[in-house]
C-alpha cells in the first residue's frame, strides 16, 4: 500500500513540475507538429492513397516525439543527482520506475491529443472504427513508455545519450510499430484481410511482458 503512495507522490511531483515548466511537453509537442508539417510536404497528397500512408505518419510521429520526451525525462533528476536521492528514500525502485513511466505515458498521450487529430485533419483521414484506433494508440504508447523509460534512466549520464537512446529502443519497439500500424490501418478502413483483435491482443501481451521485464531490469540495473 505504501509503495502505491510513493508512486502517487512521485507522479504528482513530476506532473506538477511539468505543468509549471513544460520542459518535456513543449519540445515534444513542437517537434511532433513540425514532423506533421514535414510529412505533409514529404508525401504527394493523393487523397485516394491516404489510407496507405496515414497510419505510418501517425506512428512515426508518435515514435519520434516519444523519443524526444525520453531524452528529457530524467534531465531534472540528473542535474542535482536527484535520482540517487530518490533511491535513498524508502520508496521502492519499482514505484520510482512506475511513476516515471506513467509520467512519460501521460506526456506522450497529451502530445497525441494534439497531434493525431491534426494528422487526421491535414490528411483527411476518416476513422470508421475509433475503438481500435484509440486502443492501439494507448497500448502502443504504453509499450513505448516502458522501454523508453528504462533506457532513458540507464543512459541518463551517458555521453551521446540522444543518439544511443533511439539506437537501443527502436529495434526493441519494432513490434509495437508493426502492430500499431496494422491496427491503425484497419481502423481507418484499409482493405486488409486481418484480424484487429489479434493485433490488439499482441499489443496487450507486449505491454504485459515488458512491464514485468522492465521493472525487474530497472531494479537490477540501477544497483550499481
Amino acid at each position: 500500500m505504501s509503495s502505491l503512495r510513493h508512486f502517487a507522490v512521485i507522479l504528482r511531483k513530476d506532473l506538477a513540475m511539468e505543468f509549471r515548466t513544460r520542459d518535456i511537453l513543449y519540445p515534444m509537442a513542437l517537434f511532433s507538429l513540425l514532423l506533421v508539417v514535414v510529412f505533409s510536404f514529404a508525401f504527394l497528397s493523393d487523397p485516394t492513397r491516404v489510407r496507405d500512408y496515414g497510419p505510418g505518419i501517425i506512428w512515426v510521429t508518435v515514435l519520434f516525439a516519444s523519443t524526444v520526451g525520453q531524452n528529457r525525462l530524467f534531465d531534472r533528476e540528473r542535474e542535482n543527482g536527484c535520482l540517487w536521492a530518490m533511491l535513498l528514500t524508502p520508496a521502492s525502485r519499482s514505484a520510482i520506475f512506475a511513476a516515471k513511466a506513467t509520467g512519460h505515458f501521460l506526456f506522450t498521450v497529451f502530445m497525441e491529443l494534439l497531434t493525431v487529430p491534426l494528422i487526421i485533419l491535414f490528411f483527411d483521414l476518416s476513422v470508421p472504427r475509433p475503438g481500435p484506433f484509440l486502443g492501439a494508440l494507448l497500448l502502443g504508447t504504453l509499450g513505448l513508455s516502458l522501454v523508453g523509460t528504462l533506457f532513458s534512466a540507464m543512459l541518463m549520464n551517458a555521453r551521446m545519450k540522444e543518439v544511443l537512446l533511439p539506437l537501443v529502443t527502436f529495434p526493441l519497439l519494432m513490434p509495437v510499430v508493426i502492430a500499431g500500424v496494422k491496427v491503425t490501418s484497419l481502423a481507418v478502413g484499409a482493405p486488409l484481410a486481418e484480424d484487429v483483435s489479434m493485433w490488439l491482443r499482441f499489443l496487450i501481451g507486449f505491454d504485459m511482458i515488458f512491464a514485468v521485464a522492465t521493472l525487474l531490469l530497472f531494479e537490477r540495473m540501477i544497483r550499481s
Binding site: M154, V168, P175, F210, A213, L217, R220, S224
Partner: peptide
C-alpha cells in the same frame, strides 16, 4: 549493466 540489460530484454523482444 546497461548493455547486459539490453541483451536480456532482447530475448523477449
Amino acid at each position: 549493466g546497461v548493455a547486459a540489460g539490453l541483451a536480456v530484454i532482447g530475448l523477449p523482444a
